[in-house]
Computed example of a mutant assay.
Amino acid sequence: MTRPSSSATPPPSRFATLRGYYRRWLDKRLPPARQWQLRHHQLFILPTRLGLLYLALVLALFLLGTNYQNNLILALAFLLASLFVTVVGHCYRNLAGLRLTLLPTAAGFVGEVSRLALRLESDRPRYALQIRCADATGEELASSLDSGTLGVLFQPRRRGWLTPGRLHLGSDYPLGLLHCWTSLAADSRWLIYPRPLAWTPVLHPGPGEPAAGTDDGLATDTAPAQGRAAQASPESELAGLQPYRPGEPLSRVAWKQLAQGRGWHSKAFAGAPEQGRWLRWQMTPGQHTEERLGYLTHAVLQLEQRGTAYGLELGGQHLAPGCGDAHREQALTRLALYVG
């Protein structure tokens, strides 16, 4: 008789199996969405721990009154039981009909707080609303007359896409004896950029470009001085003006013509040497991938703040030199989704 191998994968426990059934049932009943209006098939209600103690007390009073044939104790037991039944309706009504809308979530950085928020709309007041999510800090809303916002706070530890789990929205109103809740699957995800690490940005010539008489690395701190030297040299005399293109350095903008109301133009120089304008993965310091990505993220933010055009060479990916909000988003997105 052969014995089963000790390295065989153990079968899933009954609890894990039941949890899998529950998740599949919940996905079918409450599929991912961005807007909801809570109805009876989306709401669940159960007694809280205090509610279970309350029911135990009512049962004890009923048994005590029955045993001693005491009508006053029986009346008290029936009164408390009727109160519990009344609370069921009020607890359900506090969430029923509530309209929820998922608000856009802005991209963030590793280690920074990122908030996923819901806008609440109703035609009557709502009380004691709570929301929570796995691996996040939930918020509470004491009362909401007609509209409000409620959200959960994430502090991501990894870059890339952040997809939240199910949002648990519930309330113990009015007496804390019952908890009415719903489990919402948010059809949302947002990017988490690498954590910026302080570094002096260095721009290099692009792949296959000559260094144009400079070293392999060109620090951006010295770029203005080099630009002034280039403009002063005979080979880089002012040749005229050309329409301004988004992404060009602000040092080339013809501010005098702009102040005279002639529109945006940039200065064109004859024979101006081409300087390096690329952030290159191979030239970035760092012991591991995340450290290099942090340096490049900081460099992108610094260069955008200075208005310096830059390109990004990341492994086999190349982002042409440019500047502006759209260019920054493209660069940060590539850094967030980079796979080494």
Rank of each mutant, 00 (worst) to 15 (best):
Q226C: 10
W25P: 00
H168N: 11
W264S: 14
L314Y: 03
G176W: 07
L145S: 09
W190K: 01
R29N: 07
E140P: 00
V339Q: 15
R14E: 10
Q275I: 01
F154Q: 11
H318Q: 14
L83K: 00
P32K: 09
E329H: 13
P10F: 01
A8P: 01
L80T: 01
G340H: 04
L26Y: 05
R189Y: 12
L319G: 02
L52S: 08
W255S: 10
L141P: 01
F62P: 00
K256I: 08
L57Y: 02
H265S: 15
H179N: 07
G65A: 09
R19Y: 09
A270G: 03
A326L: 05
R228S: 06
L314I: 08
P47W: 02
P205E: 13
T214N: 14
V88H: 06
L167F: 07
S147Q: 15
R158N: 14
D221I: 15
A230T: 04
Q155C: 12
G65T: 09
P285M: 11
L337V: 01
L203R: 10
L191T: 00
R93G: 11
L80Y: 01
E313H: 07
S236A: 15
P234E: 12
P164N: 09
G227C: 06
A336K: 01
Y92F: 15
L74I: 13
Y295Q: 02
P104C: 01
F154M: 11
L18S: 04
L55S: 08
N70F: 00
L258W: 15
G138P: 04
W181R: 10
T137A: 11
G322T: 06
L64V: 04
P207S: 11
V202N: 01
H40G: 03
T333F: 05
R34S: 14
A77N: 02
Q317F: 05
L83V: 10
L98G: 08
L279G: 00
S143H: 15
P4D: 10
P4S: 11
H327P: 00
C133R: 01
I192L: 06
F84T: 03
A186S: 08
A268Y: 07
N94L: 10
T86G: 13
L57V: 09
L53H: 13
V88N: 02
S233F: 03
T86A: 14
E290N: 06
L26S: 09
L72G: 09
L314D: 10
K28Q: 15
Q242K: 14
P249T: 07
D325L: 05
A81F: 12
A107W: 03
L296A: 04
G311A: 10
Q69R: 12
T66I: 10
Y92S: 13
G324V: 04
K256V: 05
A232Q: 15
W181Q: 08
N94K: 04
G247I: 13
L175H: 13
H179G: 00
